[in-house]
Design a protein around this nucleic acid. Sequence first.
DNA 1: CCGGATCCCCAGGGATACTG
DNA 2: CAGTATCCCTGGGGATCCGG
Lengths: 222, 222
Amino acid sequence: MRSYGQYCSIARALDVVGDRWTLLIVRELLLRGPCRFTDLKNGLPGVAANLLSTRLKELEAAGLITREDAPPPVATALYALSETGLELEPVLKALGLWGLRFMSVERPDDAFQAQWLAYAPAWFTTDADPDAPPAVVQLVANDELAVIELRNGQVHTRPGRATDADLVLDGPPRAVLGLLSGVLDAERAGRLGLVVRGRHDLLTRLRPVARDPARTQDEAVQ
Amino acid sequence: MRSYGQYCSIARALDVVGDRWTLLIVRELLLRGPCRFTDLKNGLPGVAANLLSTRLKELEAAGLITREDAPPPVATALYALSETGLELEPVLKALGLWGLRFMSVERPDDAFQAQWLAYAPAWFTTDADPDAPPAVVQLVANDELAVIELRNGQVHTRPGRATDADLVLDGPPRAVLGLLSGVLDAERAGRLGLVVRGRHDLLTRLRPVARDPARTQDEAVQ
DNA sequence: CCGGATCCCCAGGGATACTG
DNA sequence: CAGTATCCCTGGGGATCCGG
């Protein structure tokens, strides 16, 4: 990327990660851990292979990622975030929190992946009753599955299926994520197609860190 | 900007602010408050006028800024951040904090402005002795002036000259900002040309929020 | 002088096909 | 699987011009 030519830490940060696709590559490596080229390509629907290749070289040159040959059985290159790259997590969290407000508008052609279903509750909700016993929530949206585990006041998530979920949230991504992130209340989410099975009381434990309900309502109307 | 086409709040945020120059425009409006077109152009050295014009329209359409005719005496358009735009501050702070690590490499042709001298201590330092009496620090770097006011545990800053500074930090931007942000210690900053006049003891009050000294040293060596 | 609009040129991004 | 190579086209940079 052409430098902004400004002695300002924001501009210098953008000199490094301001290029198209760059922060989304960091997102994938942050959510998935070390990845092969094809993993990244699959996790970034829409990216061109040549561009991904270019970005990975740039990121390696800038010291944000490392490229290593995986141990014998795999025998392929693995890309992973360096310490510098990992420290972008607060940037991605801030961006993702700010971006929640745009999740209520529907765009039917948008791609959707289990990874993105999983990180939202991990980053943007807290356990409102940290002393309560552990609980497991299964999320289902557009055939993508993720699990939330509430334990010791922590909200852990992972893609995939739970064997013994206490609560299942099933519906279109907009309804599931809208409820979890606090841009929708339960009633609105229901109208958008959310189906809740199991211990409804667990819903009150997942408290969105995002925004006050009043503003949420206003925006949800639109 | 072409949409990433991903139902992920990070991707959707980048759909709105991922374009070149967009976040720097927000930076200017955040640091300066409402601006005229020409103010923005001056505050963003390197931006093309047509591009700035395009971005301002896009940002207005996205609801991040408002455009209003200023009251009679001025009679010109003023651009200001909306509530949605203001809420990008955490994103800019996170980016700026992460970007500090790149401030130690010198690029002589980089532009430098008093605004950027001022926001760094406001965002990235705290008053280590909040109960101490108020104090004023004058910053001087490349003919750009800024003032830090320590008061009630707060670190306030503004561009410009102080009438009665307790401490003056004068030197190249890299030395002044490096010391304040914690990427340089006082000795290194001195070697880069920093001149300290007045109450040296105030230096210990300005505590960088950034990073542990050990890593700082390692990187400063390079 | 302010606030843009227009024009031209080129780098960077997107889609597809191809190769080790 | 892990990228390259190619072509095309959009979007950004720079200069100039124009109405108020």
